[in-house]
Write a protein that binds this DNA or RNA. Structure first.
Lengths: 240, 240
DNA sequence: AAAGATCTGTTGCAAATATAACAAAAGGTG
DNA sequence: CACCTTTTGTTATATTTGCAACAGATCTTT
């Protein structure tokens, strides 16, 4: 990790515009003015770090107190078990938060690792300063708490959605469950998935080659068509 | 559902002591005085409902605005798929909250149902009145928000723990993952589980009879001993 | 363009699982 | 106690998955 900038009253405003625009549209600061954002960043002791591909942003069992906001790039929240089987919990994209579970409840032992999927810049914030009233006069403070609640609720919701996928008993039904969610999100029967085959298999916790074979069967049966990461669901009577 | 009492300035203090004691130790009100609790309950438009066994407290796709607190009994958060396969997300015990995900983010469509596991009394509270500043003078208000954040973070944590169990590739490893978590929680190699066999299978999303057979194999191999819901992990070199 | 690395699809086989059917055990009720 | 219901364990079989190995495709690097 390479520390690229931090915020206090001296460095106020030293952040590139592309990053500010990400922060403005992030779920934590949505609706806040640029001035409010700078004020909050200083208040939250923010600093940013740059990571190469496949670098660990935090490890399982590490003590996390900062929430992370992806300013550019993307990362995986993942876990490796005793035998080295990787299980991919979530992919975190630009503009999204991660580590908020552990940052809000520092007593919880981290049970996952955060690994950069590409070159990635992360903004860290001390979330404890959000939940305890800050001494400086943050007009945006109560809104921030409200947004943090919203972020946590949505994260928990995403986790229950993921559980709904992987509790399906066959690889085909796991795939269809995930694909139909993605189609709903995209508002179209055609969509791109943010995973390659190995990552998708790790996300649905099935074997890659078995999943690849199942994808081919589904295509030959006319249930789906796919080309690399582009998936198209065909209309069939009862896919699920 | 049978409505048993609600709270406003008139009904102040009409709640049985056993229920007040549950509320006092609940994660939402922990540390609050009885007076503060009554004040908050009125502020949150609370009311309580009584449910028979196997009654639906809310259905999937229902719009949820209230968070629920189990005053007595217990319930399951579960989901049934197209073919009727039940998937048991979580068991919610006396003193625990449920529905907080949907109550905090009412735009999220409910993807699970809440079903009482036995005769159960639930206290409902309008959580939106927590996150927006209430007009009455609630001294405990900011503490309540802090507690709600904590509850959501812990719920998300529990969900990631559950994902860690069910992403294991074999029934044996799912069982061992769950059992070792329970042993850690109990602080002992012997512990009780809150599920019967069918419920445990639904929780780990495996077939009941296949799981039953696996439990027997594990016992015959000396990995565990069990009698009904009482499980004992044996010390072996490399159980996981 | 050539060489190397990575990703993807395919196949056969061993291992694990789902399913159904049944019997024994446990619990509840009159 | 007898009867009924629910829960649990057992078994056989068909289905599904994991695994390993390989070849073709795609992407990177020099």
């Amino acid at each position: 990790m390479k520390n690229i900038f931090s915020f206090n009253y001296k460095t106020f405003g030293k952040m590139p515009d592309v990053f500010i625009n990400v922060i403005k549209t992030s779920p934590l600061f949505i609706g806040a003015s640029e001035k409010e954002i700078y004020s909050m960043l200083a208040c939250l002791g923010s600093f940013a770090g740059k990571y190469e591909k496949n670098e660990a942003i935090f490890h399982a069992n590490e003590n996390i107190t900062n929430v992370g906001l992806v300013l550019s790039g993307s990362l995986y929240l993942e876990r490796e078990d005793y035998w080295g089987n990787r299980s991919l919990l979530l992919r975190v994209e630009k503009g999204e938060l991660f580590g908020e579970i552990y940052a809000c409840e520092p007593l919880l032992s981290t049970n996952i690792s955060a690994i950069s999927a590409e070159e990635t810049v992360v903004l860290f914030m001390d979330v404890q300063r959000i939940t305890t009233l800050c001494t400086s006069n943050c007009i945006y403070h109560s809104q921030l708490i409200h947004n943090l609640l919203s972020v946590l609720a949505k994260k928990a919701y995403m986790l229950t959605c993921k559980i709904n996928h992987i509790t399906k008993r066959t690889t085909r039904n796991k795939l269809l469950s995930y694909f139909s969610e993605q189609a709903l999100l995209a508002g179209s029967s055609e969509f791109m998935i943010p995973f390659n085959r190995q990552e998708l298999a790790d996300f649905l916790s099935v074997n890659r080659s078995a999943m690849s074979a199942e994808l081919s069967r589904m295509q030959s049966e006319g249930i789906i068509t796919f080309c690399k990461n582009h998936i198209k669901l065909q209309k069939v009577d009862n896919p699920l």
